[in-house]
Computed example of a mutant assay.
Amino acid sequence: MGGPVSLFWRIFSLNAAVLTVAALVLLFAPVTVSTTARMTEAVIIFAGTIATLIANAALLRVGLRPLARVTRVMTTIDLLRPGTRLAAEGPGEISALMHAFNTMLERLEHERASSAGRALAAQEDERHRIAQELHDEIGQTLTAVLLDLKRVADSSPGPVRDQLRQAQESTRNSLDEIRRIARRLRPGVLEELGLASALRALAIEFTTAGLTVRRQVASDLPALGKDVELVVYRVAQEGLTNAARHSGAHQVELSLQGQADGVRLCVRDDGRGIGAATEGAGLRGMRERALLIGATLTVEPAPGGGTAVSLHIPTAAQA
């Protein structure tokens, strides 16, 4: 048997078949054309041309339909939502094209995951470095300033002492804020006490006068790897940050529960919902982190209003 027919020869043969049929009709049909074409003859030729074009267009559409599917997938593909593949079907070059397209997608998804992993690892290292400098350099400097202010205030007259006390209070608030930023950059409680304690501290941190965070962490969770715990923590942190800054929510539920097929983290708020807003850098960052551990992130409207951010870690990815 011969090899597969190329796309060129398929289109050529379709066009040749249509034109051959048209020529045969003109040759053997009992129709003639005068030196000066009559209206009837002109109508017949015009109708034959239109029929030829319609048949040609229909045959080409059938032949090129697989390419249209490839085009649709190429215009809608998102590497942060992997798994989209084309069924490698069709004759000859069409099947080969779809197979090559699927291979290209696999390679791009692998390279995207690898580059994102390196970028996020570098980001975590940089966060640790900045947190350490905030704690060691600026934190110690502000602590020394507090001690100096206290010593000067103790030996100052009343009006000046009151002003120094106010300066002490402002410096102490700044020191607390720097420590809070350092904790968010480098979650030491996650490394020292584990994921459950880190999520508890995170819920307390985001519980403010206008926002209440309710936490539910199962006590029988399977052991998770360090990278998995860090991804879970960062997704929870970003989800709470979005709820506090953008949703206008009053209550947020933070839950981490075990399931038959893995572990699920859910951050659900009662705010205005995500609506038709496009995903920003925060959500895309969460998707990239989820891809690193083979997890799936979904963002959808919550029952009763608000937004639900869900991270599902399958059993195979928990280590």
Rank of each mutant, 00 (worst) to 15 (best):
H135L: 07
E229T: 07
W9Y: 04
A87Q: 06
L79T: 13
T75S: 14
G3C: 06
A302F: 04
V299A: 05
G90D: 05
D78Y: 05
A100H: 09
R268Y: 06
T84Q: 13
R287Q: 09
T212V: 11
L108Q: 08
A281H: 09
E106D: 15
A37T: 14
E279M: 12
R65K: 04
E191H: 11
D269T: 02
E109P: 01
R272C: 10
L19M: 02
A121I: 10
S219M: 09
L185R: 06
A131N: 04
E133G: 05
L149I: 05
A236R: 05
G282V: 05
A218Q: 07
N242L: 11
V21T: 00
Q132K: 08
R69M: 11
L199T: 09
D148S: 14
E177K: 11
G139R: 10
T171A: 15
V231Y: 02
V235A: 06
S255Q: 07
A88N: 02
T141G: 12
G239F: 07
T298P: 03
E89S: 04
A153P: 05
V267T: 14
L19F: 00
R268N: 12
G117R: 12
A23K: 01
R72S: 08
S197M: 10
T52L: 00
G210F: 06
I274C: 10
G117P: 08
R287W: 03
S197Q: 15
L199K: 06
G83D: 04
A37P: 15
D227N: 13
S170R: 15
R10Y: 00
R10L: 01
S156C: 03
D136N: 08
R214G: 06
R151L: 14
A122I: 02
P303D: 15
A295G: 02
A249R: 00
R200W: 08
T298D: 06
A55D: 04
T212E: 10
L164C: 04
V31I: 15
R112C: 06
A58W: 12
E109F: 05
V217R: 02
S197K: 14
V267D: 03
S114R: 08
F46Q: 04
A51N: 01
L27H: 01
G305D: 15
R215M: 11
A260C: 03
R81I: 05
A68Y: 12
V263W: 02
G90N: 05
P91E: 15
F12K: 00
L19S: 01
T36S: 09
L86K: 07
T75L: 14
L211D: 00
R81N: 06
V43M: 03
E238G: 04
G248W: 03
D220S: 13
P4E: 02
A100C: 05
G285M: 03
G275Q: 07
K226L: 12
G273V: 08
D78K: 12
I45A: 00
A290Y: 09
N242T: 07
E106Y: 12
P187L: 10
V309Y: 01
R272S: 13
M39E: 15
A17Y: 03
